[in-house]
């Protein structure tokens, strides 16, 4: 799998993401800078990692969505490329219009730094194929603005077209509509999610509940 992780000023989970990707495919992803204007050729996956890009100025992900690299990522996605956005990366994808909806402040106002349980709503995507159908897995949450919101019409479309990839199980701590934790694009090639599966890939540090996401990606993009 040829992957790249994009680093913005204020990004802080890029190394966790690189470790997760390296663990499943044996080599490190390319690390790209927000000022880059082109992606390496032949990429299978672009990852927008978590953090607080541009200090969350204006709105979370709003400045990153206008950064130079984002034009190349839009083009990549429009050409059928796969993009994964985690936490701040999910906020960027929404701000960039690559996914519908927006992330509001957590309903209970508190920054959430704890584990959550996620149900895998479909396993026929490259992001979720590593999970068993109906799987529930544990992942880490670390966000102040993870309250997924979209209008009623968009919500009906997301549910009707089965574009909700992941849902919170048990308490819906951030107040997301329909307990949505992760959203797919209509072609199933862009996924945004708030929790951090990349922080659950090591048996010594938090367990390996998130590993199937990365193992599934590596399997999907295994060189022929």
């Amino acid at each position: 799998m040829k992957s790249a992780v994009v680093v913005f000023p204020g990004t802080n989970r890029e190394r966790d993401m690189a470790i997760a990707l390296e663990r499943v495919c044996g080599h490190r992803p390319a690390m790209l800078w927000h000022r880059d204007t082109a992606l390496p050729t032949g990429l299978d996956l672009v990852v927008l990692p978590g953090g607080f890009s541009y200090g969350d100025y204006l709105r979370c992900g709003a400045m990153a969505a206008q950064s130079p690299i984002m034009a190349a990522i839009r083009e990549f996605a429009a050409g059928g490329g796969h993009v994964l956005g985690v936490c701040n990366g999910f906020q960027m994808l929404c701000e960039a219009g690559l996914l519908p909806g927006a992330l509001l402040k957590n309903a209970a106002l508190r920054f959430l730094a704890q584990d959550c349980s996620l149900s895998v709503e479909r396993t026929d995507t490259v992001f979720t194929r590593g999970f068993a159908p109906g799987a529930v897995f544990r992942a880490t949450m670390a966000h102040g603005d993870g309250n997924y919101f979209c209008d009623a019409e968009t919500l009906a479309r997301l549910e009707g077209e089965r574009l909700v990839a992941l849902r919170y199980v048990g308490e819906n701590l951030n107040g997301s509509v329909n307990a949505i934790a992760g959203v797919l694009s209509p072609n199933l090639r862009v996924l945004g999610l708030m929790p951090h599966p990349e922080n659950c890939v090591d048996p010594l540090v938090g367990g390996t509940d998130g590993l199937p996401m990365f193992a599934g990606l590596a399997e999907a993009f295994q060189p022929a």
Binding site: L58, Q66, E95, P100, F149
Partner: peptide, 9 residues
């Protein structure tokens, strides 16, 4: 429309 407001919310 492009930056200052997110018209979704």
């Amino acid at each position: 429309r492009q930056l200052l407001a997110n018209t979704v919310i």
